[in-house]
Design a protein around this nucleic acid. Structure first.
Lengths: 178, 178
DNA sequence: GACTATCTATCTTCTGATAAATAGCCAAAT
DNA sequence: ATTTGGCTATTTATCAGAAGATAGATAGTC
């Protein structure tokens, strides 16, 4: 594997655990097996590194989701939910944009649009999957519930928390409280 | 105001912007107008400071919410939602437990139960407010949607995002964005 | 010879934390 | 009433380590 990719992999894993200030160039250098100056060679600043992280994260989501028209209705919800379920149960990692979104006010300004683009993409993809007549607001609420559900599930150290929320989102009962 | 409280206020504000690793004892000392050693006098370690932060945050939520029986049904949803709407629009701050929950994997272990207690309390309070027949899973999904909605709303720098999600949670009806 | 990737070495600043000194206060003992 | 001793809160000074970042040297490749 090329070294730039290894650096991004290490940075992503660490950022998804501890956020922007929760990892250092030296941490990454140790993971990859080089010196911290080498990490600076590939990404001159931490800001540049994290921007690249955000871009790659979005591209991966696009690849994983595919064409919304191929996953109409509830199947589309499942497909987006799977991104979060995999993060939770397979990777045991927070969503990169979820943790950066929470820390947003303390991050370099250049990162904000990358995070916004991710949420926008998920929302637009899901709106398209839900088909004609679907409101973007509904799709956005689903993304919010998944992001928050991931936080709650991790805090309670219980994958069932997120799974249950996904079920409610699919059956459409979550928004119907009264 | 007593100095201990001023320290907690500064720490809370900064933690709700940048998370656990996003502020330092010296930051707080400058805010309060003392030296960093004085902050250590009141809270010997950062872990102790953040534990106190979590406890106070829960107590404040309890005071703000009051008795769930006094706010049945949708009124209960509004009351919990108001915690998040105030954070978003009045304070322009993330939820303390939301940001710590996202960073959980990199935080001192003693902090996790404090965060879990906050989410548990909101869920239990809301379950009680929704009355007999209400499932805790629904209440938990509402809390998740609010937490995630706060992140999305802050990322898009648009209070309407969270407001719209709150509306959906209350009515179950599809609401138009923009 | 230029380019790519890495290293060693280093800089400045910041970090959480501690020790020791100082000052103000208050109640008990003289 | 004055002194004593302890308590609270703060200071100065400092530590060892970590942070982001840079300069310059080195080696391999095309």
């Amino acid at each position: 594997m090329d070294r730039r990719t290894a650096i991004l992999d290490s940075a992503e894993r660490r950022a998804r655990k501890g956020g922007y200030y929760g990892f250092s160039f030296r941490d990454i250098a140790e993971d990859v097996g080089v010196k911290s100056a080498s990490v600076h060679y590939h990404f001159p600043t931490k800001e540049a590194l994290v921007e690249a992280l955000g871009e790659r994260y979005l591209e991966r989501a696009k690849e994983a989701l595919g064409n919304p028209a191929d996953h109409p209705g509830v199947e589309g919800v499942q497909r987006v939910a799977d991104l979060f379920l995999t993060a939770n149960e397979t990777d045991d990692l927070m969503c990169l944009c979820g943790i950066f979104g929470a820390e947003l006010a303390a991050l370099p300004a250049a990162i904000q649009p990358k995070i916004a683009a991710y949420f926008d993409y998920l929302t637009e993809w899901l709106t398209a999957a839900l088909g004609v007549g679907a409101e973007p607001a509904h799709a956005q609420a689903v993304v919010a519930a998944l992001e928050g559900g991931l936080i709650l599930s991790r805090t309670k150290d219980d994958p069932a928390v997120l799974r249950t929320i996904v079920q409610l989102l699919q059956t459409g009962q979550k928004v119907r409280l009264s």
